[in-house]
Design a binder for these strands. Sequence first.
DNA 1: ACATATTTAAAACACGCGTTTGAATCGTCA
DNA 2: TGACGATTCAAACGCGTGTTTTAAATATGT
Lengths: 220, 220
Amino acid sequence: MGLKPSQPEDPAQAATRRHLLEAASEVFAEVGFRAATVREICQRAEANIAAVNYHFGDKEHLYRAVLKETCRTALEKYPADFGLPPKATPEQRLRAFVHSFLLRIFSQGPGSRHGKLMAREMVEPTGALDAIVKEDVGPMAAVLTSIVGDLLGSSADADKKRLCGMSVVSQVLFYHHCRPVVTRLFPTMKFDAAGIEQLAEHITQFSLAAFKEISKGKKK
Amino acid sequence: MGLKPSQPEDPAQAATRRHLLEAASEVFAEVGFRAATVREICQRAEANIAAVNYHFGDKEHLYRAVLKETCRTALEKYPADFGLPPKATPEQRLRAFVHSFLLRIFSQGPGSRHGKLMAREMVEPTGALDAIVKEDVGPMAAVLTSIVGDLLGSSADADKKRLCGMSVVSQVLFYHHCRPVVTRLFPTMKFDAAGIEQLAEHITQFSLAAFKEISKGKKK
DNA sequence: ACATATTTAAAACACGCGTTTGAATCGTCA
DNA sequence: TGACGATTCAAACGCGTGTTTTAAATATGT
């Protein structure tokens, strides 16, 4: 195991480290942790083969750093209340949540491999997932539960709110996770900014319709 | 590449072949195509290392055979109209579709690695996916679109029916695909027969509520 | 029963992987 | 300038992989 640099805050030495993180996020997103090779990563980062071991200890610690970093930047770029007026209605908050979520997982390009990395993490969870669920997913779920609670009214119990929240989230994640099947089944579907906006609108309207009908039936 | 046996219908020599398929479906589902080793597969099948190359040519052809076989048996065991009376209402047909779908992807044990294998195929599609979408997923989607069409009424156009169908399917797949997050977030959730039935009931009611409200608004 | 073809078996091959090594290079402060 | 720690570099190590090879065992047909 390589020695950790003694001054990790040194801005000068951080260049190679940053290049490695960026290159690694590319490769990990493209082919996954196992199939990714440190040789390929170092080549794209224009660094030496030993750079990964020197700066991160080993391949796995590099992966954990990548996953945490991409998660952080993605949530920073597309927060749950993305472009929302201060006193928004629950309907507006749901629409913003859905749209921001879609943009977050479909976002691509430098520093945006969050969606692909998380999808891989679902199929093959690593030890890094626990921290991410606790620190990032949990708060997100709380926000959604609050929105759903407002839409369902006080009649809904905690279980129902949880299930309804997942019914919303599931629709968002589906298009990303099942993209290989969706594109083969419906080749006309596009996932550019306009397509994602249409998707967000459908998911929002579908969910709002369900909430409306459910809260109506439950009211007494 | 090993020579293909000249009499593939010979029942005696098919034993090793079947053992290989069963063992391979286990290993592929557990660790994925790449991480699976033919040594491990042959060991579980109580066959020699060279058996894979002899009976299937190479590791990839074995994988394709496994994927196709598990898909076939899963759809045979849990068809879209699972335990449905001949003259069922659209509501009953939707409930059956959802429940059967959940059982199909959550089913485990011998001959039932369909869910895990397909989830891996979503993250890393292989050449085998095209055939499966065409032969298995397509017909399934057609059945669902028909049900959704009945529930939405004649006012819905094809695009809306497609989107609503995916809103149903997404809720089913979510619990399987995002299980690592769901179980961490809500440790009380169970995925046994009873839990799956509850899930099916929620998804059906949520979707029916949305359909009811949507068709009401669109009616003119 | 024998000759032939099919299936199994053990060993080895060639290759790519993550990691380690030890020397060369760079930057910095005395 | 000179020395010292931080960083980079090329080369190699050890290991596990899919696949191939060659020989033995088994089933088949006459």
